[in-house]
Computed example of a mutant assay.
Amino acid sequence: EGYLQAVKDVCEKEGIVLIFDEVVSGFRFHPKGAQYLYGVTPHLSTFGKAMANGYSISALVGKKEIMELGGLEHEKERVFLLSTTYGAETHHLRAAQKSIEILNQNDYEVTKYIWSVGKQIKEGYNALVKQYELEKYTRLEGIDCRPYFYFQDNSLRTLFAQEMIKYGVLIQGIVPSYSHGKSEIDQTIEAFDKALKVLKYAIEENKVDDLLIGGPVKPVFRKYN
């Protein structure tokens, strides 16, 4: 509570530009971004393809006095370059216009639905974890619109993903969509049930690594291969 505002206060005191990366949170946490949800406006923000429903587009936005430094109407040193390499691909811009229009309709209906889907999946998973007494080993954490898996180690994470694939669900994380309906939610939770049964057996019998078809997954950001 108050962390982001405290960071902004320090930045403004020390003359540091505060930048929020909203590529994931923008339009998902709220159509106006996580900054609106938490009541803290940074100096610059980045947004990604969520603003165009998957079309390749991004945006750098921020305070006028900073953004103008990338333009031509000043004599100061240019601190960054605004490129128009893809400027001719206007269908991306039209997709963004329409997506933002829809996201702002009906009291943010789309975003609220995404939160609802994530909540149902998170509650379903954690209820099964409790049922199988696996709280020590795994759970779904985080904000409802973008929950994330916790596993005690990567072997368990890999075994879980492997079993989910067997039951028709390719899953790395939870990214709720407006396209996810009751059937998709039910299918996912049913697959959770079957996969967690395997995890419970593997843990109790000390056979986690034996049940893996391949090696355990590795973190994307790691020091050594």
Rank of each mutant, 00 (worst) to 15 (best):
A59H: 08
L60N: 04
V61W: 05
V61I: 11
G62E: 03
K64G: 08
K64R: 15
K64L: 10
E65F: 10
I66Y: 08
M67H: 02
L69C: 03
G70T: 07
G70R: 03
G70H: 02
G71V: 07
G71A: 09
G71K: 09
L72H: 11
H74A: 14
E75T: 11
E75V: 12
E77W: 10
R78K: 15
F80D: 05
L82W: 09
L82Y: 14
L82T: 13
L82I: 15
T85G: 06
G87D: 06
L93G: 02
R94Y: 14
R94M: 15
A95D: 00
A95M: 09
Q97C: 13
K98E: 12
I102G: 02
I102L: 14
I102V: 15
Q105W: 15
N106A: 15
N106W: 11
D107K: 08
Y108E: 11
T111G: 02
K112Q: 04
K112G: 06
Y113D: 04
I114F: 06
I114R: 02
W115V: 01
W115R: 04
S116R: 01
S116Q: 08
V117Y: 02
V117E: 04
V117R: 03
G118C: 02
Q120Y: 10
Q120R: 11
I121F: 03
E123H: 14
E123A: 15
Y125S: 01
L128H: 04
V129P: 01
K130W: 08
K130R: 11
Q131C: 05
Q131M: 07
Y132P: 07
